Simulated assay, not measured.
Amino acid sequence: MEIWKHPSDVPSDLANTVVTIGIFDGVHRGHHAILAKTVAVAQEKHSYAIALTFDPHPRLVHNPDEKLNLVSSLEDRIQRLESAGIDAVYVQHYDLSYAELSPNDFIQHQLIDELHAGSVVVGEDVRFGQHNSGDGVFLLHEGTRLGLDVYLIDDLCDDDGRRWSSTWVRELLSKGDVGGAAHVLGRPHRIRGIVQHGFKRGRELGFPTANLTGNNLGEVPVEGVYAGWLVQKVPGTDANVYLPAAISVGDNPQFDGKQRTVEAHVLGRSDLDLYGEEIAVDFIEWLRPMVKFDSVDSLLHQMDEDLRRSAEILGVPVAKRVDPKSVTAGINLHLPR
């Protein structure tokens, strides 16, 4: 799949492309239908299927003080669009100057002149142009005038009639319902970050962890302990390794922690060296709230149970806590290809 960020990146010999428009945060089930239609129309017309997306999120540009964590990073968003069959993604840098583009100019200059659109596929709630003044009805009208085929896709809902949305995903994650979030997304919720050095308390207790901190991880579920997967890229390839993990989200109340972190312990492994490496964490199931225990022994007993339940949920062999002396962080791990 091709990734374009400037008009000059777009091949000049393209014609009659099929373009879909959206932020596609999370690339959830509602997006899937729009993307499937985009790909189908492109195949029918023997043309390119293009997704026009925006970075940073427009809400963060218009309301810079707003706290908004994206459900998925731009990298994950692009990967999901590729998996859906999209041929190229145009990542439009969004700023206040771009936001002043009129709906007419957006259609003529960006969709037709820059992206060579012959067809556009969008959800019925589409908004575009200055002050979001362009909508589906306007797009249909202008499409007829300009010879642009426009496909408006009805909102898709679950069996109870609720519309699939990234807002719904955030709502579920705020309750720790990562299973529900996976239902809306069509896959487990994922965050991504760089592994940082921590206080190494987990290592000392036999539970070495990969620690993620900061405000750029994405939408982190509510504090608690989860079963999930640590996803590590195989060096030099596009392949990933999925490692079963028990994951804690919180500020470590047992040791009076002050900073909220995401700590993933790969079950039974003491040989991982992940410092400075970008990893992803997939959340599968909520296990329990984050609480302070009466003693470290009580904490250890509960953590042993967390390992057992995580292994059971993930369908892998049960692993016990590791010998702290066996932890080899600092030694490169060479994963099999």
Rank of each mutant, 00 (worst) to 15 (best):
A280I: 06
H109F: 11
S8D: 12
L148F: 01
W164T: 03
I313G: 03
A99I: 06
E142K: 13
L185G: 00
G147N: 12
Y242G: 03
D177G: 04
H116R: 06
G236A: 13
L267E: 10
G85I: 04
L274R: 02
L274A: 06
I34P: 00
G214I: 06
P324M: 13
G250R: 04
G30H: 05
M1N: 06
E204F: 02
L146A: 10
G85W: 02
V225E: 08
D113Y: 05
G330N: 10
D155K: 06
Q108G: 01
G206Q: 12
G228S: 14
Y151F: 11
I23A: 06
H93K: 09
Q92C: 05
Q259I: 15
Y48I: 07
R29A: 08
A49F: 03
S97I: 11
F106Y: 13
Y151C: 03
L300S: 07
L243S: 04
V322M: 06
A329C: 09
L173T: 04
E277R: 15
A246L: 08
S326R: 15
V241M: 12
G250K: 08
L68W: 06
P11I: 11
D65Y: 08
E223F: 03
D149R: 08
A42Q: 00
Q130R: 12
V18C: 02
G85F: 01
S133F: 09
L272D: 07
Q232P: 00
D160K: 13
E2H: 02
T20F: 01
P235S: 13
V316N: 06
T213A: 13
L314C: 09
I331T: 15
I194F: 04
E44P: 00
V10K: 09
F128H: 04
R170Q: 09
D149P: 00
W286R: 14
G118M: 02
N240E: 15
R260M: 15
L307Q: 01
S270E: 14
L35F: 07
D271N: 05
R201C: 04
H141L: 13
Y94W: 15
S119T: 13
A15W: 09
P317A: 13
C157S: 15
L70S: 01
S270F: 14
A15P: 00
Q259Y: 08
R127W: 07
G22R: 00
